[in-house]
């Protein structure tokens, strides 16, 4: 029996940068357990949440993504012992920087999800998708003038 899928006017595009030891395995578990979660999320697997350079997040926002999730192992569980502690400090500063620059912090999410927490993963994704959907498209960056646009239009 098929589940009823709700229709929305706007489907947000969401990027998730995840650590391969915890969150990616957690998402994998959610998949193999056939759990439902919103299909808006695109995942990028990285070795550790400490590997997630703020540059990645800047670039994703620049390229027109509506929301970004950063996720890794719980503190103390890092495969490399301390990567997620560095990530925590870095993201604290980065959030404040984006806030000061004028990007709504509702569009940036940081979470700890272990390999066993498939249910938490689905909940975080669903809640975040709803939140970004309520915020609407991330127009601010879209509206910045792209000097290459008219080349594309001409072609």
């Amino acid at each position: 029996m098929s589940k009823k899928i709700p229709r929305h006017d706007f489907e947000p595009k969401i990027m998730a940068f995840v650590c391969k030891w915890c969150t990616y395995s957690g998402a994998d578990l959610a998949g193999t357990s056939r759990m439902d979660y919103s299909p808006n999320v695109r995942m990028v697997r990285l070795p550790c949440s400490g590997r997630i350079d703020p540059q990645f997040l800047i670039k994703t926002f620049e390229q027109g993504v509506d929301g970004v999730i950063v996720s890794g192992c719980h503190p103390g569980d890092c495969h490399y012992n301390e990567g997620n502690y560095y990530a925590r400090r870095r993201n604290l500063a980065f959030r404040q920087l984006l806030d000061f620059q004028g990007i709504d912090l509702g569009r940036l999410e940081f979470s700890w999800i272990s390999a066993a927490e498939a249910i938490k993963w689905t909940k975080v994704i669903d809640a975040f998708t709803d939140r970004v959907r309520a915020l609407g498209p991330h127009k601010q960056y879209h509206e910045l003038i792209d000097p290459y646009d008219h080349y594309l239009e001409a072609a």
Binding site: I58, E62, A93, I145, D146
Partner: peptide, 25 residues
């Protein structure tokens, strides 16, 4: 190409956030 070389506003935003992030603390 992490920060666009062209001086349009998108690349300018990326540059100034990057610069500030590199100077945290």
């Amino acid at each position: 190409n992490w920060v666009d070389q062209a001086a349009h506003t998108k690349g300018v935003f990326a540059w100034h956030i990057t610069r500030a992030m590199h100077l945290v603390g």
